[in-house]
Nucleic acid binder design. Sequence first.
DNA 1: GTGAAAGCGCTAACAG
DNA 2: CTGTTAGCGCTTTCAC
Lengths: 333, 333
Amino acid sequence: MEKQTITIYDVAREANVSMATVSRVVNGNPNVKPATRKKVLEVIDRLDYRPNAVARGLASKKTTTVGVIIPDVSNIFFASLARGIDDVATMYKYNIILANSDGNDEKEINVLNNLLAKQVDGVIFMGHHITEAIRGEFSRSKTPVVLAGSIDPDDQVGSVNINYQEATKEATDLLAKNGNKKIAFVSGALLDPINGRERLAGYKAALKENGLKYSEGLVFESEYQYKAGIELSQRIINSGATAAYVVDDELATGIANGLIDSGVKIPEEFEVITSNNSLLTDVIRPGLTSVTQPLYDIGAVSMRLLTKLMNKEEIDEKSVILPHGIVKKGSTK
Amino acid sequence: MEKQTITIYDVAREANVSMATVSRVVNGNPNVKPATRKKVLEVIDRLDYRPNAVARGLASKKTTTVGVIIPDVSNIFFASLARGIDDVATMYKYNIILANSDGNDEKEINVLNNLLAKQVDGVIFMGHHITEAIRGEFSRSKTPVVLAGSIDPDDQVGSVNINYQEATKEATDLLAKNGNKKIAFVSGALLDPINGRERLAGYKAALKENGLKYSEGLVFESEYQYKAGIELSQRIINSGATAAYVVDDELATGIANGLIDSGVKIPEEFEVITSNNSLLTDVIRPGLTSVTQPLYDIGAVSMRLLTKLMNKEEIDEKSVILPHGIVKKGSTK
DNA sequence: GTGAAAGCGCTAACAG
DNA sequence: CTGTTAGCGCTTTCAC
C-alpha cells in the first residue's frame, strides 16, 4: 500500500477552499484573506504537503532551474566559477543542473539539447571555444545563454570575462622590463580564442612596446598538466628563453619544478609568471608571480546576468569585463 | 507573435497517427511498424520536435535527475567525487542538480527539501557529518539516498567510502616504524565521524601496536586551509613531535612549508604523511607521502549504487568500501 | 477575496 | 501494431 502523495487538491478539500486559493497562499499571492490563509497554512502543515515543482513547471512554463555546461568540474579553475554560479543561483531561487562536457564539441551539443529538453530557464556555458554548431543551437532556442570565462568571437550571447589581452600584456611587460630579451609564451591550444587571439595578441603587443622581436620558437603549446610542464621545461631551456608567461597554473608549476630540477635558479636565471593565482602558486617554492582573475566573481556575475536575461530586463552591456591584477611572488625579480 | 512550441500532438496530426504512437517511437518502444516509425521520425525531424522532459516527468513520475548535495564544489576533494558522480549519471542517462551546502546543517535541510520538491529520483549526499535532522528527512521521503565519502554512524542509507580507520593506522604505523616516538595527529573537527571515530581510532591502534602511548597534546584540530597549516606548524614543533599524520592535503602543505620555513628539515628531522594524494603533494618539495583514496571512483560507485536503488534492484551490500593505499614520496624516510 | 474550469505536454493502461 | 482515454499536480484566466 503505497503512501499516497498528497496534492494541492487534498489541501483544498480539507481546508474547504478551492485549489486556486491554496495555490495562491503557496505562492504568496497577497489576494487572500488572512483568516483563510491561516487555515490553509494549517492544513498544509498538518498534511505535510509539499508542492510538486515538476507540475508547477509544466503549468507555468518555468522550472527555476538553469543548465551549466562545464568542461570539467574537477578542474579548480572551472570549479571556482561553478561555485560563484551556484551561490548567485541560490540567491535568486534557482537550481543548477551541472553537466561536464570535457570541452568536447559533440558532447557539448548533446548536453545542451538535453538541458533544453529539461526546460531549463537559462544556460551558462563554459568552454575553450565556441563552435559554429553550438552557436547555432544557442540561437535556435529562445533560452537565454551566458558565457562564463569563455569568448565568442562574434558575441551574440552574454558573456563575462577579464581582459585577457591586457592582462597578458602587463605580465609580459613586467618580464621585459626586468631585462629579459627572450620571453617564452606557454599556452594551451592556440586555436582557442582566449589563447590564440587574446593572450597571444597581448604578448606580441608587449614585445613590440619593449622593442623585442617576436619569434615562433618561443611560443609553446601544451596540455594543462603538471607533467607536461616538467617535460616542457627542457625545451624551454633549449629555446634560450630567460623568462616565461604561462597561461595555466598547473602547467606553470610543472615548468618551474622542471627548471629547478635542472639546476636553473628561479628567479635569478629564469623568471616565471602564471595566470590563475591558485593555491598551487603559493605551495611551490619560490611562489609564482601570477595574473589574478576573479574566478568566483566571473561565475557569480554570469549568473546575475543570466537572471536579468531570464527576466527580460534591459541589459546595458551584454559583455561584461571584470578587473584583473598581478601579484608578485618569488618567481620574478 | 510567439513561436508556438510544437508538441507530440502536432507530430501525431501531421503523421496521421495517434499521440500514443508518437510517444512510442520517441521512447524507442519496439511495438511500432517500421514504416510508421519512419514516417513519424520524418515528421519529428521536419517539425523539429523536441520532447518536453517536464511533461514527461509529471506523467511518468520520473525525472531522470538526481540531486547532489556537496559541501563545496570548489574544493578539489569534493569536485573529484562530483566528477565521478556525473560521469556515471550521464552513462545511465541521468542529470545531476548540484547544490552546495557549505557543510551547514540548516542549508543541507533546505537544499534537500528543495531537491525533493523538484522530484529528483535519488540523492547523493556528501557531508562531514550526518545530523539527526537530515537523517530524519532522508527516511521521511521514499527517495533513495547514497552517502559518498561520508559516514553515517548507524547506516540506514547506502554509502561508499574507503576504510579510513585502516588507512590511518597504516600511515601512523609507517611513521612509528621509522622510529618516531611522538607522532602528531592533525585533523579537522573531531566531531566529524570520519575524523573523530575512524581516523582517530586508527591512529590510536597504530600507537598501541608500536608500544607508544597516546597523548592529547599531540592531537590537533584545524581548518582545512594552507594558512592554518602554516600557523599550526609552530605549535607542532613545540609539541615535541617528530612526525605527523595529516588528514587534508592543503593543511599538510601548509604545515610542511611552515616547518621548512622554520628551518626544520623534512624528512630528516620531521616526517609527514597526508591523506588525499592530490596534485599539491607533487608540487611541494619534498613531495608528500600520502594515503591514496580513489576519489573519482567513490563518486562513480556511489552513483552506480544509486541507480540500483532507484531501479529497486536487490543490493548485496549497502555500504561499499573501496581500496586505499599509501604512496611514498620525499616527506618520509 | 474566492472558485470553476481549462489546460501545460506527455505517459500509460486498456481496447481493439 | 495502433488508437482512446484518463490523468500527473499545478497555474491561470475569467467570473462572481
